[in-house]
Nucleic acid binder design. Structure first.
Lengths: 116, 116
DNA sequence: TCGTTATATAAATGATTCGTTAAATAGAAA
DNA sequence: TTTCTATTTAACGAATCATTTATATAACGA
């Protein structure tokens, strides 16, 4: 079982998620990634190190530039890990559907729905 | 868009993931959850607070006990967020398959005993 | 070579996290 | 009431994290 701590921790930061969203559109250099943010370039470099240590991105060396690209496998692993629990929320939805189907009319919604 | 920081951060801890795995089998009290771990019960209570603040679990009050139960919706949201990137890793696999199909032979393995 | 650009690393600092033990709270039971 | 049990909260230290500024490295171009 791979290490899940690092990738989950890496995703728990909005700057890093924004970096990933940018990289989903293609390679980008540190400069490209630093530009839209109000934080310094060294801070971006450290975020990139966190992402790379977590296996979420990889680096290519091109002259003095180091374009980063997404490495989606790590995200796929988290996706599958969460999928372990999929039955729980789908079961919940299914039972909710069943409940709704069994209701006579959707006339008025009751108070707050702590679905049990 | 819901807050993703807290749930991702909550999952970046093996003790908390183990707690979730236990709760996937049904409600459990703090005592139940503390037993298998080598850390103190107050430490477990704090982990539970982190999980609850992240929306991953909820608490029911039953006398002096406070059984926790899973709240899978938060995990479903993370699952969907990761699913945004699904095309990337599936595309990667697809291209890998295409590449493999286009190769003439499964080239020689560096191992020596190619038992045929 | 020398200067510029792209990026990383170091040092300093403040915030957060994770664990502990001790004390507080609140219901159950006697 | 008193005492037990379940749990939270407080207080604290060690470790880690995020950010900044300043410095280092490394490749390019003149």
């Amino acid at each position: 079982m791979p290490d899940l701590d690092a990738p989950f921790a890496a995703l728990a930061d909005p700057t890093r998620r924004a970096i990933l969203a940018r990289l989903a559109m293609g390679e980008a250099t540190v400069q490209d990634l630093a530009r839209p943010f109000a934080i310094s370039q060294p801070a971006i470099s450290r975020h990139l190190k966190v992402l790379e240590d977590a296996g979420l991105i990889e680096t290519r060396i091109a002259g003095t530039a180091r374009p980063r690209r997404l490495k989606p496998d790590a995200m796929a692993q988290l996706w599958h890990w969460l999928g372990q629990y999929r039955a729980l929320w789908e079961d919940r939805f299914q039972r909710l559907d069943t409940l709704l189907d069994s209701l006579p009319q959707p006339d008025e919604t009751p108070a707050k729905g702590t679905a049990e």
